[in-house]
């Protein structure tokens, strides 16, 4: 039994989630607290990975990050290779899990009414103090629930990962891809173990996310 896919999936999902939280917090913040031209369009773009076929998403990423793509050639000149490496898997997982973080994060930040933040400003607090003492303490449940959902989505990423990172055993073969491989090869005992692992994980994630989301002061 090869546990590399499990290890790789955890590693990829971890980095993808970290990226999703970083970029997602910024996006969620802007969407929740600012009004600007093209906000609706930005929302549509961020939410795309939820509805677009993963293979199409993978195709876009390939076009963008492949050696001839404009981001890919830029990174290539810096000596960074994305396509067909584990970083490609991170990229695919990051983009597909981003909306799952942004949606609840935005709702959580919007949930902290502007009156509360203004009340803190009126009491002499700087923007950073307002974020630290009012916004984050009131929104962290939503943010954490979003992070958990994003992590779960990252572990299950299949289509886009296959397009961008390929299926190289021991290099880019993540758990969902390993399951597909095992089934194709008729190795049902490996498939069963991997399926069980991912099922248990998904169940506990939704359970935990539900708990976090429900608890209120």
């Amino acid at each position: 039994m090869d546990f590399f896919p499990l290890y790789l999936t955890i590693k990829v999902s971890f980095f993808a989630t970290v990226l999703a939280i970083g970029a997602g917090l910024l996006l969620a913040w802007v969407m929740a607290k600012r009004e600007f031209w093209g906000k609706g369009l930005l929302d549509v773009v961020i939410m795309q990975p939820l509805v677009i076929p993963p293979t199409v998403l993978g195709y876009y990423l390939l076009a963008l990050f492949g050696r001839s793509g404009w981001l890919g050639s830029l990174l290539d000149s810096l000596g960074v290779e994305i396509v067909f490496t584990w970083k490609g898997a991170v990229l695919a997982a990051f983009v597909s899990s981003l909306p799952l973080f942004v949606k609840p994060a935005r709702a959580a930040l919007e949930g902290v009414g502007s009156d509360l933040e203004n009340a803190a400003r009126l009491l002499g607090k700087t923007e950073w103090q307002v974020i630290r003492t009012i916004t984050l303490p009131l929104a962290w449940r939503g943010l954490l629930a979003g992070a958990v959902m994003a992590f779960a989505r990252a572990t299950g990423e299949f289509g886009a990962t296959l397009m961008v990172a390929g299926n190289i055993p021991g290099v880019t073969q993540t758990l969902p891809i390993a399951i597909y491989d095992a089934v194709q090869a008729g190795d049902s005992s490996s498939a069963n173990v991997l399926v069980l692992i991912i099922t248990l994980f998904s169940f506990s994630v939704l359970f935990v996310a539900g708990k976090i989301g429900r608890q209120r002061l």
């Binding site: 009414g113 509360l116 009340a119 400003r121 009126l122 002499g124 607090k125 700087t126």
Partner: peptide
């Protein structure tokens, strides 16, 4: 806002 030293009581108290 933070430098104005204005006390503000919101309608729903905030």
């Amino acid at each position: 806002v933070r430098k104005r030293k204005v006390g503000y009581l919101f309608q729903d108290y905030a």
